[in-house]
Every structure is written in structure tokens, then in C-alpha cells.
Amino acid sequence: MADKEYNPKIVGFLCNWCSYAGADLAGSSKLKMPPAISSIRVMCSSRVDPVLIVTAFLRGADGVLVAGCHPGDCHYEKGNYYARRRFALLRKVMETLDLEPERFRLSWISASEGPRFKEVVTEFTEHIKGLGPNPVKEKTSL
């Protein structure tokens, strides 16, 4: 494995109505992007429990992306605002775990923003590659 390029593990929680649809549009437009991200569909970004994200980091995720509708566009009125507030706190928790808060990202991607999905995924993947492996994973792996 040593000779292979470092391939980060990135998880993306995508809200069903905006960001998952934006990812679909990127797909049907055949926009190419790096493969590191694995997407998990949720109905709303407000469904993403910060515990899930901390768990993801503790179990080896190098980066976590949560993508939802733009502020004001939430399919459920204001779920994305709740998400934003919860993750503000999450970043502080990450610091105490010696995790770079930038390993977590919250992005707003609408259903028409296929190119933006590609940009976010590409840029985030590059960024995580630059950060290297998740330090907590190294500490906890036996």
C-alpha cells in the first residue's frame, strides 16, 4: 500500500431534496470528480446527528462533508439552519479531539448546482489529501 497514492476516506451526507439532486445532476452531466467521497442520503441536513460525524472520525474518516439546501431553501422550512447551528458546536468538539476542524465541511448545494457539487467534492478531496490521514485514526488504530 505504501507505494500507492494516499487515498482519503471521505463521507458526504447529502440532503435528499437539494444536494443529492445536485449530485445527480453532476452525474447525469457526466462531470468527472475524484472517487474518495462516499455519499449517504438523508432526507434533510438536520437529520445528521453530530454523534454520527464524531463516530465517523473516530472510525477513520479523513473528512466529512454535510451538504444541504441553501439557507432559506430548506424543503422542511429551516432544517438547514438547525444543521448549521449544530455543526458550529461540532467544530469545537473536534478541536478537543485534536482533529483539524477543517476536516469537517458544511456546504450548501442546490439541485441545479451540478458543477458546484463537483467543485466542492474536488476541492474538499484535495484539501483532505493535503491534511493527510486523520490523526485520531492513527492514535486509535492498534
Binding site: C18, A21, G72, D73, S110
Partner: peptide, 17 residues
Amino acid sequence: FEEVFTNLECSTCMIAP
């Protein structure tokens, strides 16, 4: 339309479902 007034929400997100 990309966005619709007055809250400038994404038009596709609104109508695609």
C-alpha cells in the same frame, strides 16, 4: 430560473420534486 423571489430560493430545488 436559477432563483425565485422573494426568498431567492433555488428554483430547481423547489420544482424538481
